[in-house]
């Protein structure tokens, strides 16, 4: 037993090793991706976007059957309709984004130098609504998730390209997200990393824990347990609840920064959203 615990501990130590005095996202990224590539040599980098399906053939076979006609198809279709629908002022979502919002999801979350805050795609969609006189939508599910599903589908296969600029506020946001990721919380005392780094690829009862590498690439997600499409923020709230911690607000700085760190760690991996999971 002692031996097993020591082995776990050493496996776990690698991504934590760079306890940062000065945030160095590029070095973190190399360490983070390298850790997983070394630990699971059979899984190529790009395949991490398929999460648990690299670790269970049975689950992978079911997933292949499900994505043959994916259950998120309605969300993509509805999202497109919403995306193309004019606001009262005659403008559309396209007016708020570079390239009319098509093929740009891989650049989010984005650091906004004006406000000094991280802006995930969902927040950008809401900003667009407010700028055009419409009310904000829920950041977790429903119409906003559908719009995000459509926009993400237009980036399918594009490499994730999140930028942490040399701005102390951006670096601080990145660092805060990293600390959130590695901090234990809740009655169960798990960090995000407990499950998605330390126990990645292992079975939690019947479920395979997806590695943190690639995790954000398939969002928004259709989860069978949700019965519809939800955003990354919805998952953050769900995970916090599962470890019996108080979830943050959907629009909180904590979740924005966490999404920033986690998505940056996936830089270079292809967008595979919307995705489907159990």
């Amino acid at each position: 037993m002692k031996l097993a615990l020591i082995v776990l501990a050493s496996l776990w130590a690698a991504p934590l090793a760079q306890a940062a005095s000065q945030p160095d996202p590029a070095a973190d990224l190399q360490g983070f991706q390298g850790y997983f590539l070394k630990r699971f040599p059979k899984v190529p980098l790009a395949a991490y976007v398929n999460g648990p399906y690299n670790f269970s053939k049975s689950e992978r076979d079911q997933w292949k059957q499900i994505i043959e006609f994916p259950p998120y198809a309605f969300a993509v279709a509805d999202g497109k309709t919403l995306f193309d629908t004019k606001f009262a002022n005659g403008k559309t979502y396209a007016s708020c984004f570079p390239n009319g919002g098509i093929g740009i999801a891989q650049t989010y979350p984005m650091f906004d130098a004006k406000t000094g805050r991280v802006v995930p795609l969902g927040v950008a969609i809401n900003r667009c609504r407010v700028a055009n006189g419409a009310a904000k939508l829920s950041l977790t599910t429903g119409k906003l998730a559908d719009i995000e599903a459509y926009m993400t589908s237009t980036s399918d296969g594009k490499p994730i390209d999140v930028v942490v600029p040399h701005d102390p506020r951006a670096l601080a946001a990145y660092q805060a997200g990293k600390e959130y990721f590695y901090s234990r919380r809740g009655q169960l005392n798990f960090s995000c990393a407990s499950c998605h780094v330390q126990a990645a690829g292992m079975h939690l009862r019947g479920d395979v824990l997806a590695p943190a590498l690639g995790l954000t690439a398939s969002f928004p997600l259709y989860r069978s347990s949700w019965g519809d499409v939800g955003t990354l923020v919805r998952r953050f709230i769900g995970c916090n609840k599962k470890v019996k911690a108080e979830p943050e607000a959907a629009d909180s700085t904590a979740y924005r920064d966490l999404a920033y760190f986690m998505t940056y760690m996936n830089n270079g991996l292809p967008i595979a959203g919307p995705g489907a999971r159990p």
Binding site: F40, V43, N50, R60, I67, E68, A73, D156, G157, P270
Partner: peptide, 24 residues
């Protein structure tokens, strides 16, 4: 941990469906 050979990207059928839905 029994990782299996990685499955890179998505099945072509998914992409066909997605493209079709996106194009409407």
């Amino acid at each position: 941990m029994t990782e299996i050979e990685g499955l890179i990207l998505s099945a072509p059928s998914r992409r066909t469906v997605l493209a079709a839905v996106a194009a409407g």
